[in-house]
Write a protein that binds this DNA or RNA. Structure first.
Length: 117
DNA sequence: GGGGTGACGCGTC
DNA sequence: CGACGCGCCACCC
């Protein structure tokens, strides 16, 4: 169909923003976590961190998008986690072997390092 | 089209 | 430490 090329690019970009975010979150390995900013950077713009948060908030498919593996830069889980609060998120992560120090993920050891592979 | 909001990040005080 | 403030960008009135 013939819609304006620019218009289409815009639409594509917007969809891709979310698609990229979800695709990246899907790739976070078992037993590891990533930060919002990290995902934003991988999605192409590290300033998208807030959008990443929003994207996970409206997570369309929690079954395949492990949003609980996403924490903030300090390793803190979200208090507004969808399934029964942040405590639930902590449980899920600990079940994967992720260790916490003072209520925060030990980022040094569990943050996903996408460069090493 | 304008304005408020947020599962963030970073600088300041 | 904690409390603000600001920038960012997509979303929702």
């Amino acid at each position: 169909m013939q819609i304006g090329r620019e218009e289409m690019r815009e639409t594509e970009r917007e969809q891709n923003t979310f698609e990229r975010i979800y695709e990246i979150v899907r790739q976070i390995p078992y037993g590891q976590v990533a930060t919002y900013g990290q995902i934003a950077a991988l999605a192409g713009n590290k300033r998208l961190s807030r959008v990443v948060g929003y994207a996970l908030h409206v997570n369309p498919d929690p079954a395949t998008i492990p949003c609980y593996r996403v924490v903030n830069r300090l390793g803190e889980v979200s208090r507004a986690f969808a399934f029964g609060g942040g405590n639930r998120q902590v449980e899920l992560l600990e079940a994967e072997g992720v260790q916490f120090i003072d209520g925060r993920v030990d980022m040094k050891h569990y943050q996903w390092n996408h460069f090493v592979f």
